[in-house]
Every structure is written in C-alpha cells, then in structure tokens.
Simulated scan of single mutants.
Amino acid sequence: MTEEEMRKRLAGLRIEHRDLDAAIAALTAANTQDQLQIARLKKRKLRLKDQISIIEDFLTPDIIA
C-alpha cells in the first residue's frame, strides 16, 4: 500500500469514525432502548480508532532528538 493510498484510507476511516459518533449521539438522545445496537456502534468506533492510530503511526516518521 502506497503512502497516498494510506492517506486516503485514513481519511475514509476518520469520516466513518465521525459518522459513528453522530449515530451514537442520535441514538442516545432519542432515548432508545436498543442498548445492544449502541454497544455495537461503540465497539466498531473503537476498532476504527485503533486502525486510525496504526496508520497515523506508520505515516508519522520517528524523530530522534
């Protein structure tokens, strides 16, 4: 995977993460009783955050001071 592809993937993951955040907030605000759905969305959001961190770490060069 090239750096360009990784940056595009990173942008897509960030968008999906933001969308999940909005969906969780909407379900919570609607006082829905579907706690299982909210839990699944939160778990997916955490997985996305991990993937984002991995790609960011790869794209960010280590700076030796």
Rank of each mutant, 00 (worst) to 15 (best):
K49R: 13
R9W: 06
M6E: 08
I24W: 01
I55S: 00
S53C: 13
K42A: 01
A39L: 03
E5L: 15
I55A: 01
I15M: 13
Q33Y: 10
M6F: 05
K8H: 10
I24C: 03
L48A: 02
Q35K: 11
R44H: 04
L13H: 00
K42E: 01
Q33M: 12
L59S: 00
A25P: 06
D19K: 12
D50I: 09
M1L: 10
I64W: 12
E16Y: 13
T2I: 08
Q33L: 10
A30Q: 04
D50A: 11
K42I: 01
D57L: 12
D34T: 06
A11T: 03
L27V: 05
I38H: 03
R47T: 04
L41G: 05
T2R: 09
R40G: 06
A30K: 11
L27M: 14
L46W: 09
A23G: 07
K43F: 05
L59G: 00
K45W: 03
R47N: 06
A11M: 06
D34Q: 07
L59F: 01
I64D: 12
R9H: 09
Q37P: 07
L13K: 04
H17A: 08
I38G: 00
Q35Y: 11
A29G: 06
Q33A: 14
T60F: 00
F58V: 15
L20C: 02
D57T: 15
D21R: 14
K49F: 04
T60V: 02
T32M: 03
D50C: 06
I55M: 01
S53P: 11
N31Y: 05
A23R: 15
A11W: 04
L20T: 05
R44C: 00
L27W: 06
Q35M: 11
L13A: 02
I55R: 03
R18Q: 13
A39N: 08
L48V: 03
E16N: 10
T32L: 04
K8R: 14
A29E: 09
D21V: 10
I54W: 09
L48E: 01
E56N: 05
L46Y: 07
R9M: 15
A39Q: 08
M6P: 04
K49I: 03
E5C: 08
S53Y: 13
E3Q: 11
A22R: 13
I38D: 00
S53M: 14
A11K: 05
D50L: 10
L46R: 14
A26F: 05
A22Y: 09
K45R: 15
L48K: 02
E4H: 09
R40C: 04
H17K: 13
L27Y: 10
D19R: 11
I52K: 06
D50Y: 07
D21G: 15
R9F: 08
A23I: 07
T32K: 07
Q51T: 10
T2D: 09
L10F: 02
M6H: 05
A26E: 14
M6A: 07
L27T: 06
